[in-house]
Amino acid sequence: MTTSPHRLARYDRALYRSVARLSTPVLDEPLRQVSDFADFSKPWFLVAGALTLVGGPRGRRAAFAGLAAIGAASLVVNQPMKKASGVRRRPDRYGLGVPVQRWVRMPSSGSFPSGHSASAAAFAIAVGDVLPVLRPTLRVAASVIAFSRVYTGVHYPSDVLVGATVGALFGRLAGRLALQLDDKEQTS
């Protein structure tokens, strides 16, 4: 059984509306702030800076892997993928019922896929592969950022899902390369 693109779009809008209808005013301001703060990968640059300063050689390697994963994922998501998708329009927050108090600035780029989600997943996976002790915290942080993009109304759930998947792939690649370099250094 195949599902048509129109049916998938209906499911996507229905899930978007379900998130919009959540009666969680206590989350409005924190998730707005998280979504805004994640612009330009600020949280990941801060974590990478801290790892570079206090994480020793492995921390520096993890930071480099995380930033390399962000760079690769961002390039792919924000260039060929957004252009190939035919520039999917951003959701109509008003028409789909997202409460105004949740809104963040609506980006001018296309909606599909989510660059914030791609960067968050890329960094979390890459750094978590190199420093497993940070894996749970980084994955929760990446998930919160990804969810905040739907919650604030700037992305459909499928935008976030595809962005996070692409980011995770680049994160895994960067993390594995960093671990291989680590193994080579240790055997030398």
Results as ranks from 00 to 15, higher is better:
107 P>A: 06
110 G>E: 06
15 L>H: 01
90 R>P: 00
79 Q>N: 12
30 P>L: 07
70 I>Q: 11
157 P>T: 01
108 S>M: 10
137 T>A: 15
119 S>T: 13
39 D>V: 11
133 V>R: 15
19 V>H: 00
45 F>M: 12
149 R>T: 10
147 F>Q: 01
177 L>C: 06
46 L>G: 09
78 N>D: 11
69 A>C: 12
35 S>V: 10
91 P>H: 05
115 G>V: 02
52 T>D: 01
75 L>V: 00
31 L>Q: 08
78 N>Y: 03
176 R>W: 07
100 V>L: 13
115 G>I: 06
88 R>C: 09
94 Y>T: 13
24 T>M: 15
127 V>D: 00
173 L>N: 05
162 V>Q: 04
13 R>D: 10
113 P>W: 00
147 F>M: 03
111 S>P: 09
185 E>R: 14
48 A>C: 05
169 L>H: 01
10 R>T: 11
135 R>D: 06
54 V>Q: 09
116 H>V: 01
118 A>S: 12
176 R>S: 08
150 V>W: 02
130 V>N: 06
88 R>N: 05
103 W>L: 08
168 A>P: 11
7 R>C: 08
14 A>P: 00
188 S>P: 08
187 T>Q: 13
140 V>L: 10
100 V>W: 11
184 K>Y: 13
153 G>A: 15
145 I>M: 03
79 Q>H: 12
120 A>E: 13
67 L>E: 03
14 A>W: 07
24 T>W: 15
97 G>E: 01
171 G>D: 02
40 F>Q: 15
71 G>P: 08
53 L>T: 14
37 F>G: 12
18 S>I: 01
134 L>M: 14
151 Y>H: 14
26 V>W: 15
77 V>F: 09
43 P>K: 05
26 V>K: 13
101 Q>I: 12
84 A>L: 15
7 R>S: 13
135 R>H: 06
125 I>Y: 07
118 A>Y: 03
56 G>I: 07
47 V>R: 03
102 R>G: 02
19 V>K: 00
146 A>L: 01
66 G>W: 02
8 L>C: 07
9 A>Y: 08
29 E>D: 15
98 V>Q: 03
77 V>M: 06
85 S>V: 04
69 A>N: 07
133 V>S: 14
145 I>V: 06
132 P>K: 04
13 R>F: 03
142 A>H: 07
107 P>H: 09
177 L>N: 04
181 L>T: 07
37 F>Q: 12
161 L>F: 10
13 R>N: 09
167 G>N: 06
53 L>H: 11
43 P>A: 12
15 L>M: 08
54 V>C: 10
